[in-house]
Amino acid sequence: MDPNAVSPESFNAVNLFLRADWVVKLVMIGLALASLWSWTVILDKLFRFAALNREANRFEDAVASGRSLEDIAAEAGERPRHALPRMLQGALKEWRDARGKGSVAEGQAAFLIQRIDRVLDTIIARESQRIEEGLGTLAIVATASPFVGLFGTVWGIMHAFQAIALQKNTSLAVVAPSIAEALFATAIGLVAAIPAYIAFNAFSTKAGKFAARLEGFADDLSTAIQRRLAERV
């Protein structure tokens, strides 16, 4: 039996890869690595956002329970990893510093609120940047993979035309393997790009919602501090 004969087994994924030109092989390997990279980011983001929202729910419930904010902040430890307890501790630190210098006058109260808002905005900005890490990777894979796969397709088709020229045979059996290899490169590009594109949009939305949640918590903290100031006037 001719080893180069075309059969149904010639078109499975393994044989398509093994028979491919070295350039097409490099394209396939690169796209497979890009897909693996994007799936690593996807799984990390899935678990991270689930943990962030779960901890945020728990902490917001504790704050809404009516307990002392100082007690809740103390329970979070000295260096909490979650943004919400860090925001609470930052706001209370500014409050304690202002109270330690004596009574807060009306002008000083406005300045205190501004300082607290700056502290909270800084924490929100850093947390937003942290939760958006990896989204750039997904964007690159989503946008570049189809074009890389298309390059492999074009190269494979060129290889098919070379086979026609060398063998002086235009039968489908001559060009089918090379064309299949080219289309397989495109398929791998789409397999890498589609999940990355969907995940990028989904996680961008989640990141925006979480940032809005932090901003809402910051507004509540500012309101709580203003209420304390009003009660002490």
Rank of each mutant, 00 (worst) to 15 (best):
residue 144 A to W: 00
residue 131 I to R: 01
residue 79 R to T: 14
residue 99 R to M: 09
residue 170 T to H: 10
residue 174 V to F: 11
residue 20 A to E: 14
residue 153 T to I: 10
residue 20 A to V: 13
residue 78 E to Q: 11
residue 159 H to P: 01
residue 158 M to A: 01
residue 157 I to W: 09
residue 167 Q to T: 15
residue 24 V to S: 14
residue 53 N to G: 13
residue 103 S to C: 06
residue 217 F to L: 07
residue 127 E to H: 10
residue 158 M to V: 06
residue 25 K to T: 08
residue 122 T to H: 14
residue 32 A to Y: 04
residue 104 V to F: 08
residue 8 P to D: 08
residue 116 I to Q: 10
residue 65 S to A: 13
residue 202 A to Q: 04
residue 90 G to E: 04
residue 5 A to K: 09
residue 99 R to S: 04
residue 59 F to Y: 13
residue 91 A to R: 06
residue 95 W to A: 13
residue 12 N to D: 15
residue 131 I to W: 05
residue 88 L to V: 04
residue 50 A to C: 11
residue 45 K to V: 02
residue 17 F to W: 11
residue 117 D to M: 10
residue 169 N to L: 09
residue 82 H to G: 01
residue 185 A to E: 03
residue 217 F to P: 06
residue 123 I to R: 00
residue 229 L to V: 08
residue 30 G to W: 06
residue 164 I to T: 09
residue 96 R to M: 09
residue 88 L to K: 09
residue 32 A to Q: 00
residue 112 L to K: 05
residue 204 S to F: 00
residue 177 P to N: 15
residue 186 T to K: 06
residue 69 L to M: 15
residue 117 D to K: 15
residue 185 A to S: 11
residue 214 L to I: 13
residue 66 G to K: 02
residue 49 F to L: 12
residue 33 L to V: 12
residue 205 T to H: 02
residue 200 F to H: 07
residue 45 K to G: 03
residue 110 A to F: 05
residue 102 G to S: 12
residue 118 R to L: 14
residue 155 W to M: 01
residue 58 R to Q: 11
residue 154 V to H: 01
residue 148 V to G: 01
residue 50 A to V: 12
residue 222 S to V: 15
residue 19 R to Q: 13
residue 179 I to R: 03
residue 176 A to Y: 14
residue 57 N to K: 04
residue 34 A to D: 02
residue 199 A to N: 03
residue 228 R to M: 11
residue 26 L to H: 12
residue 122 T to G: 15
residue 149 G to L: 12
residue 78 E to C: 07
residue 72 I to R: 06
residue 90 G to P: 09
residue 228 R to I: 04
residue 102 G to M: 07
residue 224 A to K: 13
residue 112 L to V: 10
residue 38 S to F: 02
residue 184 F to P: 10
residue 195 P to K: 02
residue 166 L to V: 15
residue 47 F to Q: 02
residue 151 F to K: 08
residue 30 G to M: 02
residue 36 L to S: 01
residue 196 A to D: 05
residue 3 P to C: 00
residue 47 F to N: 03
residue 214 L to H: 02
residue 213 R to Y: 12
residue 142 A to V: 02
residue 53 N to E: 15
residue 220 D to Q: 14
residue 221 L to W: 04
residue 19 R to P: 05
residue 146 P to E: 08
residue 18 L to Q: 14
residue 231 E to S: 15
residue 163 A to Y: 08
residue 155 W to G: 06
residue 186 T to E: 06
residue 70 E to S: 07
residue 159 H to R: 13
residue 128 S to H: 05
residue 85 P to F: 01
residue 145 S to H: 05
residue 44 D to T: 08
residue 29 I to Y: 01
residue 93 K to Q: 15
residue 54 R to G: 15
residue 42 I to G: 01
residue 65 S to K: 00
residue 21 D to T: 09
residue 120 L to Y: 08
residue 44 D to A: 13
residue 29 I to P: 01
residue 50 A to Y: 12
residue 79 R to F: 10
residue 153 T to H: 09
residue 18 L to T: 09
residue 30 G to P: 05
residue 201 N to A: 01
residue 11 F to Y: 06
residue 90 G to M: 14
residue 42 I to Y: 00
residue 207 A to P: 07
residue 2 D to M: 12
residue 207 A to G: 05
residue 152 G to T: 12
